[in-house]
Design a protein around this nucleic acid. Sequence first.
DNA 1: GCAAGGTC
Length: 677
Amino acid sequence: MSYQLIICEKPSAAMRIAYALGGTHVRRERYKGLPVFWLEIEGKRVAVVPALGHLYGVEQNSTGWSFPIFDLRWAPLKDRRKRMWIEAIAEIAKGADSYVCACDFDVEGSLIGYTILRYACGGVDIKAKRMRFSTLTKEELRSAYKNALGRLDYERVYAGKVRHEVDWIFGVNTSRALMDAMGRAGGGFEVLSAGRVQSPTLYALCRREVEINLHVPDPFWSLNSEVVIKGAKYPAEYKVKEFFSRKEAEDVAERCQGKRGYVKDVLVKRKRIPPPPPFNLGDLQREAYRVFGYSPSKTQRIAERLYLSAAVSYPRTSSQKLPHSLGLGRIIEKLGRTERYREAARRILEKGIVKPREGRSTDPAHPAIHPTGTLPKRMSGEEGRIFDLIVRRFFATFGEDAILEEREAVVEVNERDSFKVRARDLVESGWTEYYRPYVAWRKTEGQRFEVNDEAIFVRVDVEDKFTAPPERYTASKLIAYMERQGLGTKSTRAEIIDNLYRRGYIEGREIKVTDLGFAVVGILKRFFPELVSVKMTSALEGDMVEIESGRRDQVEVVLKVVDTMKPVFERIIEKYEEIGEELFGVMNQLRRNELGPCPKCRSGHMRIVRSKKSGKRFIGCDNYPNFCNFSFPIPQRGKISRSNADCNFCGFPIIEVKDGWKIWRFCVNAGCPSNKR
DNA sequence: GCAAGGTC
């Protein structure tokens, strides 16, 4: 008897879909490692199988590392597990008589389903149906199955294909151009890269770096003051915040230091602070940076581990929604079985109505990040921290509004001098109780300042200051910038930032762009300014929308991209030497310290130089020609680096050359017996 | 060895 085949995006989704459609009669088996769910719907046999995200991707239709390449094909990704799953799905598809794509209802999901149905299942995409759903709830999945579209959503599929192909054409070709130009200039091999998302991100960092460099610090003076009212100390702010001469500030300090004033006026404002929304990935990454100092990629890795151990829900989500169907009451109850969360869970459940605060962002396939109620037996310290942050944030969304009282007093010392004193009290702690220790506001006991209270100025200090340059980005701030600009996706942003570090384009926690980063952006801007612009992404998105709505043809869009890129690469090839020299020069600076001190004069550094006469590269001392004439010939190809060892014969440094898979080492002393053969 | 996007 034949059956229907339903393709899903990932294992967890396949399981949800299988149980939603099959009720209790689901039989689970493994075929070549692939989970297969067998069930019946109205007497018809059905097999539900998962993919692992993309199983197919674009690759060049030729071999080698030449450029530019425009001829691409879709092929299985080079991953053993994925290849096994493709084989397994292909065999199961042979026995099927109808097909349904039940991947996430977005561009990438539609493409994942399409490539599998087309390339693994023998072109059955043309007779497949498409389930459309926005959450993986039972009701919605059943209705999505019943009302499935009678064909694949090809418009969305084509938009996805174009996204992949265009990114490859821009990214891989430009990266190869950079690497190749540097290699030919004698700079050896180093991984360099450029792309639609990473290059505009790096450009934004460069612009900030330039602003910082252009900043001229102006001196100014300010007062740092403290006042005691009713026995409590408060910082006080003088009515003038910036003085432009030290004398002015000193005069005020002299008039006020140690003096008694009185509270002339008090302004009280009450603010209602609703609970924060539940986490999506970006929120979690920013919050974990704020409270633990974790980088976004670290937080993501930890959250993914917690997801794999079933402690938290799917972390790669942009949703800030917690639909009732998640069984929120049950989750709270399960968490409440542990000592740690007992009290909070009890108080939330006591209220009766379990309704969380939600945020505005949604996600086509997942709810906000939340605990599942399962507690993993073992968690590392880091996992425990992130887990606790997620649990307490989840609890907080069920809390009442917090009420903050802000009191602002005007304190007068004499007729000329007055200060502002601010105090903030938590009147109703509401949700903040659940979110401790991650929120600092506390209820304050004791008296509050009132009109006519005495105020003693225990400190009025003059401070020398300078106007500050704009702040550097941190990875956390950079993620927020990328989100605002629509650069990358929730799943890729952290990884792309990591990549910029790995390439040596940026460094430091407060991100600084290196000379190499500047050189790459400079070259891109000269030859292909669009690639450093955030508009590149919006333009591609515009094209994708037009393809999705059927107004434009996918092939035409890719051809247009090829047409705009061809002259760009021609220009690059014309200026190959210039580009190569520039990268080579910068690389050399970076490698200066890597090669180590000069073994002859001991004060300079070894570096790679290129002879003006012969065009060949060699190792020379950077004290040449003034104090030192050390030199040593090296192979013209390959990456040069200092090895950890010194020569056994003469003690000179050993240099390593890596060219593809070949590695060889030699001593940099031309007169050393190890070099005589 | 190169992009950006999905997923373990």
